[in-house]
Amino acid sequence: MLVPRLARAVFVPVTHVAFRPTVEGREHIPLNGAVILAANHLSFLDSFIIPLMSPRPVAFLAKQEYFTRRGLRGWIDRTTLTAVGAIGVPRGAHRAAQEALETALRVLKDGQAFGIHPEGSRSRDGRLYRGRTGVAWLALASGAPVVPVAVLGTDRVQPVGARFPRPGRVTVRFGEPLRFSPPTGSAAKARRDATDQIMDAIAALSGQERAAAYNELSGTP
């Protein structure tokens, strides 16, 4: 655990200098026990900014290949992912997606914080897309509260396709926790309803235009 702590000690002040973040609602994140942070997704940078601005470590899933790249870019990826406690997982077919959710569930069962982007992949047009139900599966299976999160400005700091971020201003808003009871009827409907409620809360924080469709360039659930 020493390496992640040291890396985080370096990256937090660097982030404040480079991106001058405005952080709202940190008090909504419980400091102990399992919690899910469900966020919008505008930039590759989102999964780094959220854990660094959170009052406690937050684990996100990351593509395994980010940990195995060579050269300077590979070193930067590994170091940054280590700093934020990212977990490498394979990407691919449905089974890989289910394995990713099971990995996330183990994180929650250990009483840790887990971050997820319900849209799947980054929004290319700035709209908030329909959420995939993996986030609700995790909430219902673990009993963990869900803190909605809105990240703003990261699409200007590191647009889709940009190799590295540039200085700019970002805002991170943490909303009030949402809690969901075990379903008494259809589990599929309960997951869909919970996911829609989570996306409504994210939209209220972000102010993004809504898209009725899924983002078809989806990654992890």
Rank of each mutant, 00 (worst) to 15 (best):
A141E: 13
I29D: 06
R20I: 04
R5C: 03
A113S: 15
R56V: 15
G143C: 10
P183I: 02
F164A: 13
A194Q: 00
R78N: 05
G74D: 04
L52M: 15
S121Y: 04
V3D: 00
T22L: 11
G111H: 12
R26N: 13
V170E: 03
P90C: 00
S181P: 10
P13K: 02
F67A: 04
A190R: 00
G33W: 14
F164N: 12
K63L: 07
L2H: 11
D193G: 02
G143A: 12
P182G: 03
Y214I: 06
G126W: 06
L31W: 11
G33Y: 13
A162E: 13
I116Y: 08
T68N: 10
G71I: 05
R132D: 03
R179L: 11
I202T: 04
V35H: 00
V3A: 11
R5M: 08
L101V: 10
V14Y: 11
L128I: 09
R56D: 03
E216K: 09
L101Y: 11
M53Q: 12
A139Q: 02
P57K: 13
I202P: 02
S181Q: 15
A83G: 07
Q112T: 00
Y214S: 08
R173Y: 09
G219A: 02
L128W: 11
G92V: 08
P183L: 08
V135E: 02
Y66W: 08
R166K: 12
R106P: 15
D46H: 06
I29V: 15
T103M: 03
T154Q: 03
S121M: 01
